[in-house]
Design a protein around this nucleic acid. Structure first.
Lengths: 253, 253
DNA sequence: CACCATTGTGTGATTGTGACACAATGATAA
DNA sequence: TTATCATTGTGTCACAATCACACAATGGTG
């Protein structure tokens, strides 16, 4: 019961400083082992998983709140973040249900009756993320996108809509580099594309893919090669954000 | 002063039944005279124009609220509606400022301090819309997109983001038919495309454009021709939503 | 040091897109 | 009644982009 009181105080403080009817949910994508991953967490007292999310301070810009929440959760400062949809079903969320799930006494419910949630997706470099706990979190780790379990609230819908939005944008913008380490090989890049677009391995023709990628001015081949593999050492490449900005200026606007 | 009191009562009632921190703003697009139009309104007591918008009832689905607001404003029942972005700058809106603009006494401010707004854009058939007034509206009519004046709050930003989103979707989905009457000629369709994509007249090659459109299974040529023009009578066409659904199934998913 | 999975590159076939010209039409005006 | 003329409807060719495909070079492995 002591624990409950403490947690309740924390929640109370949080809510006093935040907007109550609006929250943020983040779908954090990472790429590892040729698999697209999402970061999920399990709250204390709950055995269901959910998306990392949070509340918006009363004086805080919506986007700043999203960055703050992600920083708190991943430790990362500058990440690619994209708002993709706002979820407003009138039954998507239920304050009393949350209290119950967290094993907290319902008569102290500080959660609002209803909350609309703004969905952001983030693209991060898997290896840099050290999933962070907070006072309500019991577990936090990566899941393969295909293996995402049944989540709390409408979070499954949020994940699937995020994935759809990601795929759509992926066709038109060079987003993939946010998911890879600074230096990577073309075959790694190809696997990333195949995975995100939901294609099977080698569905994309390796030669055509490489030709196409090399035709982009914003992809730089380094002198360095990746050693350690059992075969011919492939070149390493680097994404050049400045040149990509130039490229965008020339091809859009 | 009598008037003020009445309006205040109406607003009060409205706010008691609605979410207070969240609103909806709608960018209603129409097409007329080879021009893309947006529907704007001017509130009583204000000399600035703004987007039609409204509040979400506490028990109402976000999307239902958007449809309701549009129905109230355009009289139209089934319209193409698309959520495109949620605007959450912490200084985008100011409850007290609104009261001042409306010439209402500030000590009775019922507007929330801050509100985040979900942006929807709508595509409607210009000729079907009869702009509707409500108790706060003094004027409501169409503006050429290029001539949109300086608007209240961040509404200019909302319009420009809506236009950007519209153009982006326009490249990938057959949205244009929502803006045209049931029967139309190919040259009308071409003008619509040129206008929305921001191209000058005849920038698209008429022959190639027609060839492309006719290749789509969801566009039906009617026996009927459009008469009355001073020249050869062009065929009329109709968009077939069922066939378009089939087309989407075959070419996406 | 032979092996072999993997990398790096080039070429021809197919498809899609863009540029262009001419006959048919139908209201208008002589 | 008929010539005029802006506009409609359609076909062909050139070029670019994409796709399918093969072979020599490489660098650990055994």
């Amino acid at each position: 019961m002591e624990k409950f009181i403490t947690v309740l105080q924390d929640i109370k403080t949080l809510f006093n400083r935040s907007l109550s009817e609006l929250s943020i949910d983040c779908v954090v994508f990472g790429f590892h082992d040729e698999q697209l991953k999402v970061l999920l967490l399990r709250a204390k007292g709950s055995d269901s998983w959910m998306l990392p999310g949070g509340w918006i301070l009363k004086t805080e810009h919506l986007e700043d709140a999203a960055y703050r929440i992600l920083k708190e959760r991943t430790g990362l400062d500058s990440i690619f973040l994209q708002q993709f949809y706002t979820f407003g079903a009138n039954n998507r969320y239920n304050g009393k249900e949350i209290m119950a799930r967290l094993g907290l006494p319902q008569e102290h419910n500080f959660f609002p009756e209803r909350a609309v949630s703004v969905g952001y997706y983030a693209l991060v470099e898997y290896s840099l993320v050290e999933p962070q706990m907070d006072f309500m979190t019991e577990e936090c780790h990566w899941w393969d996108v295909q293996d995402v379990p049944e989540l709390l609230f409408d979070h499954n819908e949020i994940v699937s809509k995020a994935l759809k939005a990601l795929r759509k944008q992926f066709d038109h913008e060079a987003l993939g580099f946010n998911l890879l380490p600074e230096k990577f090989t073309l075959i790694e890049l190809q696997r990333l594309y195949e995975t995100i677009l939901g294609l099977e391995k080698d569905k994309l023709d390796r030669r055509n893919f490489q030709k196409k990628m090399l035709s982009y001015s914003f992809l730089e081949r380094l002198e360095e090669r990746k050693t350690g593999g059992a075969h011919k050492a492939p070149y390493l490449y680097r994404f050049n954000p400045e040149k990509y900005a130039d490229y965008l200026r020339e091809n859009e606007s």
